[in-house]
Design a protein around this nucleic acid. Structure first.
Length: 552
RNA sequence: UGGACCAUUGUGUAACGGUAGCACUGCAGAUUUUGGUUCUGCCUGUCUAGGUUCGAAUCCUAGUGGUCCAACCA
């Protein structure tokens, strides 16, 4: 029996509408503005919109809200499409608000004819001043009562390019005294002599969000138009315009956007990080963008799982970034190929090992019942992790120490006999003896050791560069920090290990392969990899209870 | 100081007038040739005050707290 999963409030609305017969099927949309790249907050919205249509048998449009030509670029359109696809969703139609410019113009004319819109010659300063404040009513514009004919002519002249930017606007005539600021004669059209990424120079007037979004929804017969909480007060205008225009009544529902600890979600600030070179582009693996998470090695499955776990509600929230990491680990644990890589080498010489061409067999993924195996070359000179050895170990240190034994993963048990140091007292290598009868899978030693270490054979080791990422900010809520962003950047957010020693199987690593470097973390090949240099990104570390124990 | 929306363990999210549950985190233990995984157990919560009701997290009122609204941005 599968357990009944409770519905979120939007699913309840949809189920209510469906069972009441209000709609036969639903239509949703994901409406990004192509002025930046998508981030994990958008992923929440994507999963919600596409997920709803999937669950209830409907369809979802991808609609670019491209009504502001000065900030929007085709480059972003392409990036957004790639991101949505990568997340695993298919849109029914690829649409653009700019497809509707002619229709929208017609809607505006209709409003003018109904006496519900007028051309205003006021400067933006005047309009702002007359708008009033949340506690004081606004003042009606001197141009508010122009005749329908005059408005029609003026609006046509606006379109014809007779005026300069900012000289005139088209405003709705609603209520300057409304307690809802958005109803105080909102601007519908403004003049912008700017090149549009799709319509080129065909237009010099562009509709505002409020006169494009709801109308586009209506044109596409969107049944459930889902957006974030800051649009709650827009809903009154949304409904008013649809009613006055007498067009298909789409309905808007609002949910709380995603906030996550240690991460910035504002497109403006993310752009700033890119422009001021605090990160290396939109897909720098430390960014919360979809493209960055992809490059870093997150899987679409794990992001979808995350979006499922965080839920959908109207309460402001702050999700622990650890939950995202949990979802990534959970999925990667199931699919990642295990490999051994030594980050900070300490040489181990097996004094009783007589050279033979030996390989040891190791499963690629113990979580996979159908796991494949690979042969790893073994030899008398090995690298282990420097911090897997301690000369004076504390209690419960299950790794290597003088006289102590550990198992080398998939190979033998070894004992540390001698610690070799240079003139300055630095440990340069360890002399150990191995127990031939302790061979992995064929252990007749009768011993059982607490610790198992990863290792790499010195003569067979291949070189790789490792990029270890940590949170970009050192404050839990960077969005609420008011000073300079660079003051809260985590200086250790990127640590590069130039020369790590990897087992030879890694030489065949391909892009999109997911690896678990044993006892270290999950890694994936970075696009900076070239013929002569392999670069791996750390997707996320493994849980490390030993590190936690030590902090106590 | 106007209006709108919101308030459940540390963080999220359920409970639709009838036993406050789930996940993450944290803690303790078992298993483990990854101090990973897996498994078991445990901790912590209904913003406050009134009211309605046999019974309130749920409904009502007031208060308190948070978020949003005065871009020719979306």
């Amino acid at each position: 029996m599968s357990e009944e999963k409770s519905l979120n409030f939007i699913e309840e609305i949809v189920e209510g509408d469906l069972s009441a017969g209000k709609y036969k099927s639903i239509v949703t949309r994901f409406p990004p503005e192509p002025n930046g790249h998508l981030h994990v907050g958008h992923a929440k919205s994507i999963c919600l919109n596409f997920g709803l249509a999937q669950k209830y048998g409907g369809s979802t449009n991808l609609r670019f809200d491209d009504t502001n030509p000065t900030t929007e670029e085709t480059q972003y359109v392409e990036g957004i499409k790639e991101d949505v696809k990568w997340l695993g969703f298919e849109w029914a139609n690829e649409l653009y608000a700019s497809d509707y410019f002619e229709q929208l113009y017609g809607f505006a004319v209709k409003l003018i004819e109904k006496g519900l819109a007028y051309v205003d010659d006021s400067t933006s300063e005047t309009i702002a001043a007359e708008k009033g404040t949340p506690t004081q009513p606004g003042k009606e514009s001197a141009y508010r009562n122009r005749s329908v004919e005059e408005n029609l002519q003026l609006f046509a002249d606006m379109r014809a390019g007779k005026y300069k930017d900012g000289e005139k606007v088209l405003r709705a005539k609603v209520d300057m005294a409304s307690t809802n600021m958005l109803l105080r004669d909102p601007i519908l059209y403004r003049i912008k002599h700017a090149h549009h990424h799709r319509t080129g120079d065909a237009w010099c007037i562009y509709p505002m969000y409020d006169f494009a979004h709801g109308q586009s929804d209506s044109i596409e017969k969107i049944t459930h138009s889902i957006c974030t909480l800051e649009f709650v007060s827009h809903r009154a205008l949304y409904d008013w315009l649809i009613e006055q225009l007498g067009i298909f009544p789409s309905h808007q529902y609002e949910f709380a956007r995603l906030n996550m600890t240690y991460t910035l979600m504002s497109k403006r600030k993310l752009l700033q990080l890119v422009n001021e070179k605090y990160v290396d582009g939109w897909d720098d693996p430390r960014m919360p963008t979809i493209s960055a998470m992809r490059r870093r090695g997150f899987t679409p499955e794990s992001i979808r799982k995350f979006c499922d776990l965080i839920g959908v509600a109207k309460r402001e929230n702050m999700i622990d970034v650890g939950l995202l990491e949990f979802c990534v680990r959970e999925h990667l644990n199931k699919v990642a190929q295990r490999r051994m890589v030594v980050f900070d080498p300490l040489k181990v010489v097996l004094t009783n090992y007589t050279d033979k061409d030996e390989t040891v067999r190791c499963e690629d993924n113990p979580e996979d019942p159908n796991t494949t195996y690979r042969d790893i070359p073994f030899s008398g000179e090995l690298y282990i992790e420097r911090d897997d050895f301690m000369e004076n170990p504390p209690k419960k240190f299950f790794r290597l120490a003088p006289g102590q034994m550990v198992r080398l993963k998939s190979a033998y048990i070894i004992r540390c006999d001698d610690v070799i140091k240079d003139a300055d007292g630095n440990i340069t290598e360890l002399h150990c003896s191995y127990l031939p009868e302790s061979q992995s899978g064929n252990d007749k030693s009768g011993l059982h050791v607490k610790g198992t270490l990863h290792w790499v054979s010195v003569p067979h080791a291949v070189n790789a560069e490792l990029r270890l990422y940590d949170r970009l900010f050192n404050t839990e809520d960077p969005a609420s920090y008011e000073g300079d962003l660079k003051d809260i950047l985590n200086p250790g957010s990127l640590q590069i290990i130039q020369h790590a020693y990897a087992e030879p199987a890694l030489r065949n690593a391909k892009f999109d392969d997911r690896y678990q470097f044993l006892r270290k973390g999950y890694y994936t090949l970075d696009k900076d990899t070239s013929e002569d240099r392999m670069v791996f990104n750390r997707t996320v570390t493994l849980k490390d209870t030993w590190a936690k124990e030590q902090k106590k």
